[in-house]
Design a protein around this nucleic acid. Structure first.
Lengths: 141, 141
DNA sequence: GATTACTGTAATAATATCAGTTACAGTTGA
DNA sequence: TCAACTGTAACTGATATTATTACAGTAATC
């Protein structure tokens, strides 16, 4: 899995946890354990997909623009990691004389498309709000 | 996804397609489009897990040792790609003062364990035999 | 028993991917 | 006008992936 997905999920949970729903790229980066530029790149993508609003300039940062319970991991997955399941490496060669070698690419592709959908369905069942609850429950228990 | 998984699946389908169920690492490598050493490494693992028999020496190679219809992709996944879904990159820091930052690792981990199981369930439904049928059907159609 | 054709595995090299850093233009609040 | 932000691009360094080389061990065949 794409690690940008992880950063995105973490960031959104953090925003959801903030009373005012806001944080700067630097705050997020510290919390996630990475650098602000990487966070900004991910958040920029989340903004384009309507998950957050950004405020540039002094005192700015990111704000969650949707209800935590209405944002599923599937939404995030689709926005920045869809199709990441299939390996970059492609098996076989369409020009091969062998029936197996020449068709494996397509068949493998179909397998991974299915896997991707399966994964998406699973992610559909998990929301940012639920992850936050899970964390607060763990912290209290 | 681990590309060794792809090589393994392709190799087993190829063996299942062979009338005598056999092929050498070089033949497989050519068909898969990679080098024989890589194939041998993957096959070595498949042998240890009981998917194939090997015959060393002249005229040797690999032979499928199970019924194609009884080998699921889940079996293969478990043997050499289990847990590969979670990114190497880990979010947050257990020592963090922030509740979110310090617990995200665990929660994220749980999410990916679930995803892994989901994937395994999906792979359970696909067999080497079915993939081969799918290829022969495509080739004929 | 020598030769040939294989597997098994380690070590190394080449390449590609990923993550961190620096730099700087643009924006906004004070 | 200054300070604190975002948005991006370019560069560097780290890490992971794939290919290559090398060689020991095994078995069939001449």
């Amino acid at each position: 899995m794409n690690s940008e997905f992880v950063i995105a999920v973490h960031s959104l949970v953090l925003l959801a946890h903030r009373p005012d729903g806001m944080a700067s790229s630097e705050e997020i980066a510290t919390n996630v354990c990475t650098n602000p530029v990487r966070v900004r790149k991910v958040m920029s993508c989340l903004r384009k997909n309507g998950f957050v609003d950004t405020r540039e300039g002094s005192g700015g940062g990111y704000r969650l623009s949707r209800e935590p319970d209405n944002v599923t991991l599937a939404d995030i997955y689709r926005a920045l990691a869809s199709g990441s399941l299939a390996p970059s490496w492609c098996s076989g060669d369409p020009e091969s004389d062998c029936m197996v070698g020449s068709n494996m690419g397509n068949v493998m592709n179909a397998v991974f498309c299915g896997a991707d959908q399966q994964l998406e369905t699973y992610f559909e069942s998990i929301t940012i709000g639920r992850m936050l609850s899970s964390i607060t429950a763990t912290a209290k228990g």
